[in-house]
Design a protein around this nucleic acid. Sequence first.
DNA 1: AATGAAGTTGACAGAAAGGTAACCAGTATA
DNA 2: TATACTGGTTACCTTTCTGTCAACTTCATT
Lengths: 122, 122
Amino acid sequence: MNYTEFKHCGLNVALEVLSGKWKPIILFHLFHQQEIRFTDLWRNIPKVAKKVLLEHLKQMEADGLIVREERQVFPPEVYYRISEKGKALGPALAALENWANEHASAQVQELRDKKKVANGQR
Amino acid sequence: MNYTEFKHCGLNVALEVLSGKWKPIILFHLFHQQEIRFTDLWRNIPKVAKKVLLEHLKQMEADGLIVREERQVFPPEVYYRISEKGKALGPALAALENWANEHASAQVQELRDKKKVANGQR
DNA sequence: AATGAAGTTGACAGAAAGGTAACCAGTATA
DNA sequence: TATACTGGTTACCTTTCTGTCAACTTCATT
């Protein structure tokens, strides 16, 4: 048995950190926006419950993927942005993205269709 | 908004395909063994129920990550091996693995400890 | 007839994940 | 006074996931 490809334990951690229905979309937004307010993020992701989005964000903050900044003004403003650690995931995520597009394009298409259907609510 | 890093939709697909409590370990074995019999795999993964392992394998076969080969001998023999599509995941998985080891080593260590504790049964 | 191997299936339980709706605080605005 | 905004919390519910256990299949051997 040789361990050339990957050792699977860190893999487990990485997948745990990424698992969560909305985390990919959250990352997507944070990768492209350098900072975003909670409500804006919420409005940009159709169909998430506030509570669930909050939970995801909390986990991601605890995992060090994102940074939360609270500005003490009177309608409170909370900004989220990606951390260095989160940014470091970029290449790995891009590799997964590529894999899916090259080897699983049918499934990607299915997902796209599902999403189209899912819009029209809220 | 620029899409330099990743586009997230294929990401979703990739993560879906990888999500499942035992899939990383299964991949780990298949990456290092070119073929393995069901029962051997089962014996090598501590604490999975047969049924759950079977379900994971079925999903992974349906997703095209692995190949199932049934040899019609008299105590039936079923071999699993990684497919080309599965192999193509190698670099992406290695990237995740690296990320975890470089940026999340504490969490990896936690996981290792948890696993140590979990052994001692079955 | 009984045993064993490799796999499959079903009943069922418990845990985890995801989701709804209502509510709070403090300020602002109509 | 009533309403709205923002970021959260709380209680509650439903769905999905994971797991155990037992039973069953098929051919070959004992």
